[in-house]
Amino acid sequence: MTTSEKLSFWYCNNCNRTLNHGEFRYNCTTCDDYDYCERCAKTVDPPHPHRMVPELAYGRAEKKKCRIKDMMTIIQTAIDKYWDRYCMGIRDVDKENPAIYMDSYSWFTFKNIGDRSKNFGHGLRRLIEPRGYLGICAENRPEWMITDFACIFQSIISVPIYTLFNKNEIAYVINNTQVSVIVCDKQLLPKFIDIHEQCSSLQHIQLQKNRGSQFTI
């Protein structure tokens, strides 16, 4: 998100300055509606007694008309309207101990999500035609929604597959929906390799590759 001259809905409770759209505000996790600007959060003495976490301050969004009420148009309108706001994020982990989660997040803006969805959708069209069935089987992460949005943009029908299904249950879903493409994460890949011979319609398995703490398609 880019800082602009447009004012946001928040102000700093220490210096009383109204924060700009795209600027970080440090929000108290205990006090109700209590924020510092970034400068005050780092310099005020004594510091605020409660833990404060950085969040984005944003102002009023530009109005966008949305006449056609189909899902693709609604998603595209949201991307155009909120392009520089945070849309989805991944909670950061400690670099030395990945089992420990941090207070910070790595965020994707609406534009990031829109661009990745469209690009992935163009790639999917090399594997599957519109109105074809694509299965999604992965843990909760932005890539799950990116895949679903990509299907919507390309008129592909997405079939969610529960990650805790056993091999027989997964094969049943694939065979009864005639899924031809599966998008899955690394942990679930062995299941689909084992059952692909039981599923005559399944032609492609698209892996979400692990790069560090994030999964990308």
Rank of each mutant, 00 (worst) to 15 (best):
W83T: 05
R67K: 09
D84I: 05
A99S: 13
D94H: 10
M52I: 06
W144P: 02
G123C: 06
S106N: 10
R141Q: 12
R116V: 13
P49H: 05
H48Y: 04
P98C: 10
A150W: 03
R116S: 15
N140D: 01
I74Q: 01
K63F: 11
R126A: 13
C66L: 15
V159E: 02
P130T: 11
D92N: 15
G89I: 00
N97H: 08
A150G: 04
Y82S: 08
G89A: 13
M52A: 04
C151T: 00
S158H: 12
N112D: 15
D80P: 10
S117C: 15
W107A: 02
N112A: 11
S158G: 04
S104Q: 10
R60F: 00
M145R: 04
R131E: 12
D80T: 14
W107Y: 10
M71K: 04
A150H: 01
E143V: 03
I90N: 04
R141N: 12
W83P: 01
Y105C: 13
S117Q: 12
T109Q: 07
M145E: 04
A78D: 11
D103L: 13
D84G: 04
R116F: 14
V53Y: 07
K111E: 14
K65H: 05
S106Q: 08
Y58D: 09
P46T: 03
D80E: 15
I128T: 02
E139W: 08
G135D: 00
G132M: 07
P54R: 01
G123P: 00
P49R: 02
G132C: 09
V93P: 01
T73H: 15
L134C: 08
Y82L: 14
L124N: 06
V159R: 00
R131I: 07
W144I: 08
P54S: 05
R116Q: 15
I146W: 05
R141K: 12
A150V: 03
S106Y: 07
W107F: 02
E139T: 08
P98R: 14
A138F: 04
K111F: 11
E143A: 11
K81D: 01
R91I: 10
D45T: 12
T147G: 15
D103K: 09
E143H: 06
D45W: 02
G123N: 11
P49Q: 03
G114K: 10
P130L: 10
E62L: 14
H48N: 09
I156S: 07
R51C: 07
T77M: 13
C87W: 11
I152H: 06
I75K: 11
E139D: 10
S117I: 05
F120V: 02
C137G: 00
G114D: 06
K64I: 14
N112T: 10
P98H: 06
M72P: 10
D94W: 08
F110W: 12
G123I: 02
E62W: 12
Y101I: 13
K81M: 14
R126N: 13
I113T: 13
P47M: 09
F108D: 06
I156D: 01
I157Y: 05
R131L: 11
T147Q: 04
I157F: 00
V93D: 04
D103V: 09
R60T: 08
R141E: 09
E143Y: 09
G135R: 01
R85I: 07
G114F: 09
K95N: 13
M102R: 15
Y101H: 14
